[in-house]
Computed example of a mutant assay.
Amino acid sequence: MTVHHVPKTVSDYIALAVVKAMRVPADLFFARRYGHRAVVLETVAAVPGMVGGVLQHLKSLRTMQPDQGKIRALLDEAENERMHLMTFILIAKPTWLERALVLLVQGLMFNLYFLLYLITPKTCHRIAGYLEEEAITSYTEYLAEIDNGSIQNVPAPPCAIDYWHLPAGAGLHDLVVAIREDEVRHRDINHAFADSMT
C-alpha cells in the first residue's frame, strides 16, 4: 500500500530523518493504541497544510502571481486532517494527558514548521509527504488489528458517515480505509509540490 518516495537530495534525507525521529516518541508513548495515536498525530498532520496554505497565500499576494492551485489544495488538506481529528476524538476519547500533549506538540510543530517553511518550502513539503507515508503505515497496521479482532470494529460516528459519505452502518474498518485514502492523496500532493520546487 505505502509508496515510499526515495530520497534523492540532501533536503530529502533531512526531511526523512526528521519524520523518522518524530515517529520514535509516538511509538514509545502510544504503542498499538491507534485511536489515541491518531488523536495526537492528526493534530500535527493538520499543521503543514494550514502553514503552507497561509504562506503560499501571502506569497501570491506579495508577488502578485497565481498560485497554481496550491493554496486551495493545502487548506483543503488542513481541513481534511482536522476532520480526522474530530472523528477520532469521538472514537478514542482522549485523556487529559493526551489533550495536554496535543497543546505541546501542536505548538512546537506549528512554530518550527512555519519558520522552516519560510526558509525552505521544498523541505517542508517533503516532510509532509513523509509524515503521510508514516500515517499510511499506521493506518494499515490499525486495519490489521481491526481485521484480526484485536480492536473492535465499532460503528463509525455519524459525523464521519456524513463527511466521507460512508454507507449507513459503516464501522471503524470502513472509516480507517477512507482516512487512509485521504493520507495517500496528501502524500502524493506534498511530494509533487516538493518535486516542483527548485
Results as ranks from 00 to 15, higher is better:
L55H: 03
D27K: 14
G69I: 02
L103Y: 15
T9E: 09
Q56V: 01
V39L: 06
P25I: 03
L55N: 02
N80W: 06
V44D: 07
K20F: 15
P48H: 13
R37T: 10
V51R: 02
K93S: 14
L55G: 01
G69L: 05
G52L: 04
D76T: 10
R37V: 07
K20Y: 13
V51G: 00
T63A: 14
R72S: 04
E42K: 14
I71M: 02
Q68N: 09
V102M: 15
V19W: 14
I14N: 00
A38W: 01
D67G: 01
E77I: 12
S60P: 04
T95E: 10
T95C: 08
T63W: 01
T43G: 10
T43M: 05
I14R: 04
G49K: 00
I91L: 09
H84R: 15
R82T: 02
A92L: 08
M64P: 08
L75M: 11
D67E: 08
L85S: 14
F29G: 06
A78M: 03
V19F: 05
V40L: 14
Q56W: 00
E42C: 11
K20G: 11
V51M: 01
R82N: 06
T9M: 05
R62I: 06
V18N: 05
A26M: 09
G69Q: 06
V54G: 03
P66K: 08
P48A: 04
I71E: 10
D67I: 02
V54E: 10
L41F: 04
S60C: 04
Y13G: 08
Q65D: 08
R62F: 12
S11L: 12
A15L: 03
G49V: 03
Q65Y: 03
L75Y: 03
L55F: 01
I89L: 15
I71G: 05
A78P: 00
E42S: 13
P94V: 02
Q65F: 14
A92V: 09
A17S: 13
K8M: 11
V10P: 01
L58V: 02
L16I: 10
R82F: 11
V18M: 15
A26Y: 07
T43Q: 05
R32G: 13
L97H: 03
W96R: 15
A100K: 12
W96L: 15
K59M: 07
Y34C: 01
F30W: 15
I14T: 11
V39P: 00
P48F: 12
Y13W: 07
V39H: 04
R23L: 09
R72N: 06
